[in-house]
Deep mutational scan, measured.
Amino acid sequence: NKFNKEMRNAYWEILHLPNLNEEQKNAFIQSLYDDPSQSANLLAEAKKLNDAQA
């Protein structure tokens, strides 16, 4: 299933973003579980936030 793979990839990438705190990571990961079809968008948002907090 495409979403499972996308979701897993997004999950791991978000988990390893160095500039997000636990609360931010948890919020993105919760959103992933709530709507796996948004994995790519959530990952993009997480990366933007990560870069902004660098």
Rank of each mutant, 00 (worst) to 15 (best):
D35Y: 05
K48Q: 06
S37A: 11
K25R: 11
L42K: 12
S31T: 09
S37N: 06
K2D: 15
S31L: 13
L20I: 12
N41T: 07
E45P: 01
A27T: 08
W12N: 03
K25F: 13
Q53T: 09
N1I: 14
L32I: 06
L43A: 07
E23P: 08
A10R: 03
N50H: 09
F28V: 07
A52E: 09
L42W: 14
E45F: 03
K48Y: 13
P36E: 02
K48M: 12
N19R: 06
E6Q: 06
F3M: 15
Q53I: 08
A52V: 09
A54N: 14
Q38P: 10
L17Y: 05
N9A: 15
W12G: 04
L49S: 08
D51P: 04
N1F: 00
K47N: 06
E13M: 11
M7F: 14
Q24K: 07
F28P: 00
Y11R: 07
K25L: 12
Q30K: 14
D35T: 05
A27N: 10
M7W: 15
L15V: 12
L43K: 11
M7Q: 15
E45M: 11
S39T: 05
S37P: 15
E45G: 03
K2V: 10
Y11T: 02
D51V: 07
S39A: 11
E22R: 15
K47Y: 04
L20R: 00
L42I: 11
W12E: 04
F28A: 08
A10V: 03
E22N: 13
F28K: 06
M7Y: 03
P18D: 11
K25T: 12
L49D: 13
L32H: 00
A54Q: 14
E23R: 11
E13V: 13
A40L: 10
E23K: 12
D34L: 12
Q53V: 07
P18E: 15
Q53A: 06
L42Y: 06
L42V: 11
N1M: 01
A10P: 00
P36F: 04
P18H: 06
E6W: 01
L32D: 00
D35F: 04
E13K: 14
